[in-house]
Amino acid sequence: MLALLLAWIVVAAVIKNSYFIHMLFMATTYALLACALNIVVGITGLANMSQAAFFGIGAYTAALLATKFGAPFYINIIAAAVVSMLFGLAVGAPTLRLKGFYLSLVTIGFAQVLRIIEINWVSLTNGPMGITAIPGVSIGRYLFSKKAYIFYGLVVLLIILYVTKRLMASKIGRALSAIKNDEVAAKSLGINITYYKVLAFAMSSFFAGMAGSIYAQYTTFVSPDSFVQNDSTTLLCMVILGGSGTLFGPIFGAIVLIFVPEILRFADMYRLIFVGVVMIVGILAKEGQWFAHVQKFFKDRLTSLIRVKSGNREGAV
């Protein structure tokens, strides 16, 4: 894994082509979002279908702070994280008491309502036109190049990974995984499951907000179309297929779902089909034990083949 990160850094340092830089930045951002989502989906086992909405809240917060007040990037990123987390609490606290599938419904509904607010509250968000000319990140006189944002993203990614790793080794992580595995058992051990679910939800939206702030200052432009339901679903897919609950799995998921369609040079439309097929086949292969069935199928064929052969030989003898 360390090798992957090193490779990432080396590639980021070497590449010059602005298209590749953009791709690598997007992969970093999605890796970030997927790792944040992993806390809720992978570790705690909850279906959050609005990660892109929290990403958007972070981006809008940073965009507004940067354009209206000229706030420096460290203020932007922290404010974006906090605002996004507050939204996460507002959505999570009442819903996480309910059965699992309600969360998926509420998060989808929340994302849609948020989008409509983004489009209609023109005085704040500039409506469908979005917020333009967001100043980039600068430290002193140094203005970040596009490439620098990859490193900015990587630093935040490392922070998320560190936090996740530390938490997984603590009482909090054990409680979250107990909730994922067996809520009844978790309750019987004195774990306040609503509290921990809300905590996981808040952490995930916190980091998603950070990603939003980086993205806003990188692209210098945010609009309601930057954060749509398809992105949330794709992120969910990255987490589940990459290996939900593992530390680095979501990064692999992000890499595959960002780069493969790009390498295959899919048009935008085909990309969604690709993501859809990956979601279907990936889950079926994982949960339906297709591999086991296929293996058994060939094994049976093979053994019958061997039997026939050896039978022939015996016949010959």
Binding site: Y162, V163, R166, S170, K171, I172, G173, R174, A186, L189
Partner: peptide, 15 residues
Amino acid sequence: LGHHIRLKQNMADAL
């Protein structure tokens, strides 16, 4: 997991 309720550690301790 049975120790959950008696562990005093908080998030900062863990981090």
